[in-house]
């Protein structure tokens, strides 16, 4: 939508040089009609709804080694809305994830800002990691953190690794931050020839 307006004006100016004024007026009118469409704001889902149904029993990763038939990771709406990623960032501090993972740099727990993922970098895998826990330290938060908040947290963890779009990832903090903002994180390089 942002490219429309300048293009229309350029055409209008160009045409106005040699064509009749009526044509130019029509184009200007079109530009005026098109402009309000760019005012639309991202919609925030404030209900507690989780479209992704939580699986009964223990969730297991769909990843497995060996053959190349691993399913392509699905994208979630939670990593496509800036609001949900920002909420995840708040919860990351509230629930003291930084106690082990620090601000994504890793310390007691693994780093979240590199391209090495023991248990998969897709959002379902991160959700499973948060809910079920992982060996050597990652506790299980199943039943403690509501389902929707787990997805928001996972979306934020993806943004720390640079996996979400730059216009969705949070920008700078209000306070001092050791690392660049999430929306300036470098995109991870493909692993084994596959995109993240």
């Amino acid at each position: 939508m942002q490219f429309w307006l300048p293009t229309v004006f350029l055409v209008a100016i160009y045409r106005g040089q040699k064509s009749d004024a009526a044509m130019m007026r029509a184009i200007m009118l079109l530009a005026l009609l098109v402009a309000p469409a760019s005012c639309q704001r991202e919609e925030r889902d404030l209900t507690g709804s989780v479209p992704e149904k939580p699986a009964a029993g223990i969730e297991q990763s769909v990843l497995h080694p060996g053959d190349g038939n691993n399913p392509a990771p699905a994208r979630s709406k939670y990593e496509e809305t800036a609001f949900d990623v920002a909420e995840g960032k708040r919860l990351f501090q509230w629930f003291n994830c930084s106690g082990c993972h620090f601000n994504g740099g890793g310390g007691i727990g693994p780093a979240l800002m590199d391209d090495k993922w023991f248990y998969g970098s897709s959002i379902e895998n991160i959700v499973a990691t948060i809910k079920e826990g992982r060996p050597n330290g990652m506790p299980s938060f199943k039943g403690l953190v509501p389902e929707k908040e787990v997805w928001q947290l996972a979306a934020y963890v993806r943004s720390v690794g640079g996996f979400v779009a730059k216009d969705v990832a949070p920008s700078r903090n209000d306070d001092l931050n050791a690392a660049p903002a999430e929306n300036r994180a470098p995109t991870p390089s493909p692993f084994n020839g596959k995109g993240p």
Partner: peptide, 16 residues
């Protein structure tokens, strides 16, 4: 039972 229905946007989530 549903904080978001009463105060939409509040930081208290709807508990499962």
């Amino acid at each position: 039972s549903d904080p978001q229905a009463i105060k939409p946007g509040t930081k208290m989530p709807k508990a499962d």
